[in-house]
Design a protein around this nucleic acid. Structure first.
Lengths: 197, 197
DNA sequence: ACGCATGTAGACAAATCTGTCTACATAGGG
DNA sequence: CCCTATGTAGACAGATTTGTCTACATGCGT
């Protein structure tokens, strides 16, 4: 997950979206006021409201943007890892280690959004659900076709979400060792199930 | 997790805390104003601020209260299940199924709090970390003493947190089937590791 | 040169939030 | 009877929030 702070002279909509992304992800959505986004993006209020008719619209755009950013990174990182040695679900370990080690890591934006809004913002909830489904789909792609493919991918996704949360709880300095160790044990258990039966 | 709505004539501090618990857990902390807690608890503003000098103090009291409530329920439910058939980590399945089936289920209050506040409220973060450590300790109690005890308990906790999050994402009507199926697969994998090596 | 897109700066309204304050009621102990 | 503790009701201050509005600047195509 690269930072998104290269936005010198892009069109205002992109500047706003990129700024909102960084602030929403770092500080939480509710904690981030529109005025702060406007000031940090260096646009005027009129410009902002011409691009996004309301804060809710910005939130939905943020979720789309984050989705594209994260899924893009995830697929790329998996590709990089499976080019190396790791096989099957085990690719997930170095990939997540890379993410958790990023100093900007603050958990999963979609988990955090559901935690903040629950079902009080249905469109946002739908976007979060869709994101997680896509993640499961990509994880399923690591597995050979077969009866257990979807079950194993769903279980691995449960483990990944758990590891994300545990990593979020750990101190920055620990680089999420507990989360990754737990995930490794889980994935090796799932591997046995997948290969042996 | 029982509801907490039996608070007719308790002392005001308990009424406030119980009301705050229900609102904070259901709607989120930031989304719940002090005025709403006050109105719903049926106390006056002066009374409220005599019991809790600030909203942050109420939040910390809420986390303590929720911790006691949840850990109490968790230990009791595990005891009930291990009295029956389930053994070791497998006790977790019916226990979590019971929780996820509760219509008031809205995920883990501590995960949600970390998602809302991150490290912007260090005392709250510390309370959340402490809660999760206690949860890992209880899970470790399900396992025989041995080299792998702590590793397996940590891994199971990762899986439990993941299942909580996935259950939170699922529709109310699904009773969190995906989360529980994934957790079951994970726990059976961990069981193999624990017993065989 | 004109008109229009697009931009900035910032006042403003209306709501909401936390926290303090005054004024008043009530019940129990000495 | 009176004092104090504990409670209610609600006004108020001050900050912050979202969203609208006016007034002005700048650049571009025709």
């Amino acid at each position: 997950m690269a930072s998104t702070t290269t936005l010198v002279d892009k069109p205002p909509r992109e500047r706003i979206l990129s700024t909102a992304h960084d602030l929403f992800y770092r500080d939480g959505i509710r904690a981030t006021g529109i005025d702060k986004v406007i000031a940090e993006a260096g646009v005027s209020k009129v410009t902002f409201y011409r691009c996004f008719p309301s804060k809710n619209a910005l939130i939905l755009a943020f979720l789309d943007y984050r989705h594209a950013l994260w899924i893009g990174w995830f697929e790329d990182a998996l590709r990089r890892q499976s080019d190396r040695k790791a096989k099957g679900l085990m690719c997930l370990l170095p990939v997540l280690e890379e993410w958790f080690g990023n100093p900007l890591f603050r958990g999963c934006a979609f988990i955090n959004t559901v935690a903040e809004f629950g079902d009080s913002f249905p469109e946002a909830l739908a976007a979060c659900r869709s994101h997680k489904q896509d993640m499961v789909g990509i994880i399923a792609g690591l597995l050979p076709a077969g009866e257990l493919r979807f079950s194993l991918a769903s279980a691995a996704a449960v483990a990944v979400d758990g590891a994300i949360v545990v990593a979020q709880f750990e101190l920055q300095t620990s680089s999420a060792k507990t989360a990754l160790a737990g995930l490794e044990l889980i994935l090796s258990g799932l591997h046995k199930i997948g290969s042996a039966g």
